[in-house]
Design a protein around this nucleic acid. Structure first.
Lengths: 220, 220
DNA sequence: TAGATTGTTAATCGATTAACAATC
DNA sequence: TAGATTGTTAATCGATTAACAATC
C-alpha cells in the first residue's frame, strides 16, 4: 500500500555498507553498533540507521546489528544472491580487462560472452569466454538468458548497439561509453564515465594548487 | 575575501557540461541558451544557470552562452588546459587498459610510466610506456613531476602504496582498488569502485524485477 | 532491572527549482 | 527599442543530522 520510494543517495551507499560488513565478517566481528560502524566508515551513525531502516528493522535495540545477518540482507537487496548472466560488447582493452576480472564472478556476475565488430577477434577467448561477431549477438542473448550488457565500445556506436540490446531483451546496461543513453522505462543504465572521473580529480587538484600557489600564502 | 565554496554536486556535473559543449562545438553550434541545453541534457535550465554562475558570468543576457567560450572556460576550471603527468601502479589488465586509452592523452593526462610488483613485467612496454619495478617508483616520481597516480592493484596493497606515493609527492590518486584510502589534507582522491557500480545496477534490476514479477501484476 | 542502542520523529541543512528584475 | 535570456533572489524540496522514546 505505502510504496516508500528509496532515494538514490541511499542506494549509492548500499554497496559500501556491504563492503565494510564483508570486511568485518572476515575479521571475525559478529555484531556492530551504528556508532562503531559510523567511526569506521566516517559517516554519521544517524545516517546508517536511517539508511538501513528504509529496508526494514535489521538491528536490535540494545544490541546493534548482527554483521553476518546484515551482510546477507544487503547482499539480497543488491541482488547478489542470484546469478546474473553478462555479456561484454567491445573486446578492446577495457572489455577484456573486465572479462578477466574474477571478483565479478564471485559476486554472481557471470560473463558469458564477448562481442566485437572486428572479425579478426572472433574465435579467440578470454579466460575461456568466447569472442564472437556482432551478428551472433541476438541469438546468444535469447538463448543464454543475458540480463546485463557491458558497453565498452566507442561512443559513436554505443547508442545504436544499446537500442539493439534492448530490443533483444537486455534489461540492464553497464555503460562505459562516453555518451548518455536514452532508454525506455524498465531498462536500467549505470554509467561509468572514466574521463569524467579523472576530470573531477583534475578539478580538485587544480583548485587546490591555485589556492596554495606561490609557496605558502599567508591567510589574513 | 568571500570564499564561495562550490558544492560537490556542482563539480560532479562540470565534466558532463564539458562533454555536451564539446559535442555542440563539433556540430558547429556557436551559441546556446540555458533552455536549449537543458532540453538536450535533461536537466533544468535553472540548474544550468545556477551551476555556471558559481564560476562567474559566462553568459550574456538576451544572447545565451557562446559555446566555444564556455567550453574553454569549463576546460580551464577542470584543469584541462595544462598537462598532467600520470603513473599507473599495477600493470594488470585494467592498468594496461588505462595506459592504452588514447582519450586521456587528448585531455592532457600523459601516462609516463607503469609500475608493477611482478618483476617479469619489467622492461616491457605498453604503447611505448615502460613497465618498471616498484623500487624505481620514488626516483621516477621525483624526476618526472608526477602529479597523478592511478591505483589499479589489489586492495591488500593499495593503502600501503598510497602512503608511499604521497610521501614521494603525489598529490592526486585515482583509486580503482576496492578500498577507501585515508589521505592527509591536500591530497585528492577520486574513487572508481567498479564492483560498487555493478551492484547498483544489479540493485535496480532486481528491484524492478521484484515489482513486475509474475507477468503484469494489476495495480488496484 | 538497568544499560545500551535501535527505530523514528523533528530540526537543520543544503540543493534544486521557480520567479523575475537586470541587461544585453 | 522590444525581445530574449541571463544572473540572482526567494521558495520549495529533499537529504542529513539531532534527539529521544521504544525496546531488547
Amino acid at each position: 500500500m505505502e510504496e516508500k520510494e528509496i532515494s538514490k543517495a541511499v542506494i549509492r551507499r548500499l554497496p559500501r555498507y556491504y563492503r565494510y560488513l564483508g570486511e568485518l565478517m572476515e575479521s571475525g566481528v559478529e555484531r556492530i553498533s551504528s556508532n562503531e560502524l559510523s567511526e569506521r566508515m566516517r559517516v554519521t551513525a544517524s545516517q546508517i540507521r536511517q539508511d538501513l531502516n528504509n529496508f526494514g528493522g535489521f538491528g536490535q535495540q540494545g544490541y546493534g546489528y548482527n554483521v553476518k545477518y546484515l551482510y546477507d540482507e544487503i547482499g539480497r537487496l543488491l541482488g547478489l544472491d542470484k546469478k546474473h548472466n553478462v555479456i561484454i560488447i567491445g573486446g578492446g582493452n577495457l572489455g577484456q580487462a573486465l572479462a578477466n576480472y574474477p571478483a565479478f564472478e564471485k559476486r554472481g556476475f557471470i560473463v558469458k560472452g564477448i562481442f566485437d565488430i572486428n572479425p579478426k577477434l572472433s574465435g579467440r577467448t578470454v579466460r575461456g569466454i568466447p569472442i564472437m561477431p556482432m551478428e551472433q549477438m541476438e541469438e546468444f542473448i535469447r538463448e543464454n538468458d543475458i540480463q546485463i550488457a557491458t558497453l565498452t565500445l566507442p561512443k559513436t556506436s554505443a547508442t545504436e548497439v544499446a537500442d539493439q540490446l534492448i530490443s533483444y531483451g537486455v534489461r540492464a546496461i553497464w555503460n562505459f561509453a562516453h555518451t548518455d543513453l536514452n532508454v525506455p522505462e524498465g531498462v536500467m543504465v549505470e554509467n561509468v564515465h572514466l574521463s569524467e572521473s579523472i576530470m573531477r580529480l583534475s578539478y580538485n587538484l587544480t583548485r587546490y594548487e591555485e589556492e596554495h600557489k606561490s609557496g605558502k600564502k599567508e591567510k589574513k
